[in-house]
Amino acid sequence: MASQDIILAKLNQQQKIAVESTEGPLLVFAGAGSGKTRVITNRIAYLITEKGISPKNILAVTFTKKAAGEMQERVLSLLKELNVGNENTPLIGTFHSIGALFLRNNAKYVGLSPNFSIFDTNDSENLIKDILVEQNIDIKQIKPKAISYFISAAKNEMVSPDTFSHHYGGFLEDITAEIYPLYQKQLLSQNALDFGDLIYLTVKLLSENERVLGKYQDMYPYMMIDEYQDTNTAQYMFAKLLSQKYQNICVVGDDDQGIYGWRGADIKNIQNFEKDFENVKVVKLEQNYRSTGNVISAATAVIQQNTLRVEKALWTEKGSGNCISVYQAND
């Protein structure tokens, strides 16, 4: 069987369109249970085997380490089936792991050495606690965790220590405005950064250093992002900077499944994708392989109350299934 037949054999018509649309910006609205991971996996294989794109020129980004690992396994398995060697593989990872890679390779431009440490949540809060004590601020009243939250939120929004007070106001925010610059200075002195810096500093690097930006744009002219509805400002800027030269960017997501607004995700990133790029091709994956008709109808009836959503018509071949029952639990 030809490689193209293997890649496309188990796909429905809309999935095939998404896989075969390799040039220019592509927006794939993938409803729940619509096989989006298969589309991304097969699209990577299609780029390599049918379009002759080197795996080294493909970047795929997702949100969790687990999702990235599963995608990597599926890509390697499919490439093996297609008799493609795995000596060169696409770069598949989370925003944070890819940011860490970029920063280690360009550490000198952000004032670090390549062997920098990455502080976890406890490390960050302990450092903030030490700074609060040094500033004679009562840590029983002002919790380090609260200050850490605002610093993290600022980095998600690409707000620097110097401009924090221009964007945030309030009692805790005013204290954070004092601590944030000291915190960043301490991190730098320890050759360390925190989780938020992995994207915040990467975006600063790409936006301020044209040579580094150009290097990565040429290295990864083909880019795919999963769960695009969950991107925050920093992640959005990362994607836009990297893709602005060749614009071969494919984003996959579903504005009906945006649940991370509390951590800075902006649903407008996927809803406004067609405004950010010219000649965007839109594909809607509407066939659901997971749920029965009654479940889909009920979910649709609820989500349709959101007047800002992109219209989608989910359907399934699974039949109506059992009626939905309602269980009301005690408080």
Results as ranks from 00 to 15, higher is better:
residue 284 K to Q: 04
residue 148 S to I: 08
residue 161 P to I: 11
residue 300 T to H: 02
residue 148 S to C: 07
residue 29 F to W: 10
residue 181 P to E: 05
residue 24 G to L: 13
residue 51 K to N: 07
residue 254 D to F: 06
residue 72 Q to E: 13
residue 216 Y to T: 00
residue 298 A to D: 04
residue 47 L to S: 00
residue 208 E to L: 15
residue 273 F to C: 08
residue 261 G to I: 03
residue 154 A to P: 10
residue 187 L to N: 02
residue 191 N to K: 04
residue 201 L to M: 14
residue 153 A to I: 08
residue 166 H to I: 06
residue 277 F to Q: 14
residue 249 I to M: 02
residue 153 A to K: 15
residue 103 L to N: 01
residue 189 S to Q: 13
residue 216 Y to V: 02
residue 222 Y to T: 01
residue 245 K to C: 05
residue 101 L to Q: 06
residue 8 L to Y: 08
residue 234 A to P: 13
residue 109 Y to C: 01
residue 270 I to P: 09
residue 22 T to I: 13
residue 245 K to M: 12
residue 239 A to W: 10
residue 51 K to D: 07
residue 51 K to L: 07
residue 71 M to H: 15
residue 301 A to W: 09
residue 249 I to S: 09
residue 83 N to I: 11
residue 108 K to Q: 11
residue 120 D to C: 00
residue 172 L to I: 11
residue 125 E to Q: 15
residue 111 G to K: 01
residue 120 D to S: 02
residue 131 I to H: 01
residue 52 G to D: 03
residue 203 V to C: 12
residue 206 L to N: 00
residue 67 A to M: 08
residue 191 N to T: 11
residue 287 Q to N: 13
residue 226 D to M: 05
residue 176 T to W: 00
residue 90 P to V: 02
residue 40 I to W: 00
residue 178 E to F: 02
residue 257 Q to N: 00
residue 129 K to T: 09
residue 240 K to A: 03
residue 72 Q to N: 14
residue 50 E to H: 02
residue 111 G to Q: 06
residue 152 S to Y: 08
residue 215 K to Q: 11
residue 49 T to C: 06
residue 229 Q to A: 01
residue 240 K to E: 12
residue 319 G to C: 05
residue 310 V to S: 10
residue 230 D to H: 05
residue 79 L to K: 15
residue 302 V to R: 11
residue 167 H to N: 14
residue 48 I to T: 00
residue 236 Y to I: 02
residue 68 A to K: 15
residue 171 F to L: 08
residue 15 Q to W: 11
residue 254 D to R: 07
residue 78 L to N: 01
residue 154 A to N: 12
residue 100 A to R: 08
residue 296 I to M: 13
residue 150 F to H: 14
residue 262 W to Q: 05
residue 299 A to H: 02
residue 267 I to E: 02
residue 39 V to K: 12
residue 36 K to L: 02
residue 273 F to D: 13
residue 326 V to L: 15
residue 30 A to F: 07
residue 231 T to P: 07
residue 45 A to D: 07
residue 330 N to W: 04
residue 288 N to R: 15
residue 271 Q to R: 05
residue 250 C to A: 06
residue 265 A to L: 06
residue 320 S to L: 11
residue 47 L to N: 01
residue 50 E to D: 04
residue 232 N to L: 06
residue 10 K to F: 04
residue 225 I to D: 06
residue 278 E to V: 03
residue 94 T to I: 07
residue 324 I to M: 15
residue 48 I to Q: 00
residue 188 L to N: 13
residue 232 N to Q: 13
residue 4 Q to C: 09
residue 66 K to D: 09
residue 164 F to Q: 03
residue 297 S to N: 14
residue 276 D to T: 09
residue 254 D to Q: 09
residue 270 I to M: 05
residue 270 I to D: 06
residue 181 P to C: 04
residue 157 E to V: 03
residue 149 Y to F: 12
residue 141 Q to M: 08
residue 64 T to I: 10
